[in-house]
Design a protein around this nucleic acid. Structure first.
Lengths: 226, 226
DNA sequence: AATCTAAACGGACCTCGGTCCGGATCCTGA
DNA sequence: TCAGGATCCGGACCGAGGTCCGTTTAGATT
């Protein structure tokens, strides 16, 4: 499989030692040309790099995407790779961005039930299935950007928590797919998510706790408490 | 804050070049002494290393936990750290294991509503809140073991997906905390989770899709669609 | 066309995670 | 008590990610 990607979201042009923060452009799906006026040679090299990276993924898997290898395959200096994408994760993200933008376009302007026109619940169902399938492909690429995420889920102590939740769920909703439901609930408790919501979005912990209570009620179809 | 941890789950004694796979001991909360009979010096060094790592976390934050620094602080060779914990993540996991075991003990044998005795729904609610609070502390440690997880959530293309789900949810359940609900739903679509369930647990993708449909029904309190 | 400046380039260099193997150390069994 | 051998230790070594800065080049201005 070949990941041919050329135009994608870029990082700011490397303001010496300033963390490459991602621009807050949300839902700006202006169909390409979101490049912040790169110089000609820069744009050319960027394209080369993405093309080379895609080729390397296709040939040697995501683990073969070494920054030096990409640089060499693109006939470019190593520093250029980092200036353009910040770091390895940034490069992989840029590769992923391609299909991400595609899915985005599909549910923003595509045909129903994914796109506008169908009732919201239908759209939500279709969205999940589409996202699920998209992730199922390029799993290697996604995981390459999250080296440790898979290990976490396999760790005994987390497994124990999942098992506990599963057992409780079986007592409450015996007819449901409790293994999956437990995973869904546990996802809400993911430390990374907690960090994002509290530290980056500024939500107080109390709100998250209330959210959990509500989530449990919904998942188990029980009455909202008090 | 000091993380004093000594006895925790260990890796097998390093069978040359064999991936240190985590033993399938589930729910074995035999309150300590799960050490697989380490040699005296090995056990001593293990304790030293965990103590040193905890001190480093307390002093310089999780990012200060360099394998070499830990080794030196414990007056031990670098190779010893890796032999004992496999890799940096393994070391951090071992540090985390302490509070994980504690939570585990709490809901397995502690007082209600967390422990046995309360109705399952109550226990589930209490469990989430407890887990939420536990994660809120040691966030730095958790994130150190998942370097890229937080970035992923902040990435524009993922934000766009979350926003879309949020908007749909607002149309379906205007009274809910749709931001949080959207995050919970998106958690189910996390690539790492998909990988774990399909590749490691052997679930077919169809089951995950059915799980999504069901999850949406529950989250929105709509009728299960046949 | 000549010039000038900001931006991009390249690759030497550094750090740190991870590996390897000769040598030291601990436990067993006699 | 004393081999003998399995286990463990230590630190030199390697590779890949990430940084720095002197040099080159695009492209605007005159």
């Amino acid at each position: 499989m070949l990941y041919a990607v050329f135009m994608s979201s870029a990082l700011p042009p490397f303001p010496k030692h300033q963390e490459p923060v991602d621009q807050p452009q949300l839902l700006e799906v202006g169909s390409g040309a979101d490049e912040p006026c790169l110089r000609a040679d820069a744009a050319r090299n960027r394209a080369r790099l993405l093309e080379a990276a895609g080729r390397l993924v296709a040939e040697h898997g995501a683990s073969g995407v070494t920054m030096e290898a990409v640089a060499e395959a693109a006939s470019v200096g190593k520093g250029t790779v980092f200036r353009r994408f910040g770091d390895r994760t940034g490069l992989l993200m840029a590769l992923l961005d391609h299909s991400a933008k595609k899915l985005q376009a599909d549910f923003l302007g595509g045909p129903p039930p994914l796109g506008p026109g169908a009732p919201p619940v239908e759209r939500l169902r279709a969205f999940g299935v589409a996202a699920l399938r998209r992730s199922a492909e390029q799993l290697d690429l996604q995981l390459a950007a999250q080296p440790e995420a898979a290990r976490r889920l396999a760790h005994p102590s987390l497994r124990a928590l999942v098992t506990h939740v599963t057992i409780l769920l079986r007592q409450i909703v015996p007819d449901a797919d409790c293994d999956l439901l437990a995973q869904a609930l546990m996802g809400y408790l993911d430390p990374a998510l907690i960090h994002h919501l509290t530290k980056q979005c500024g939500m107080p912990l109390e709100r998250l706790e209330a959210g959990w209570i509500d989530l449990v009620s919904r998942a188990t179809r029980t009455e909202p408490s008090h």
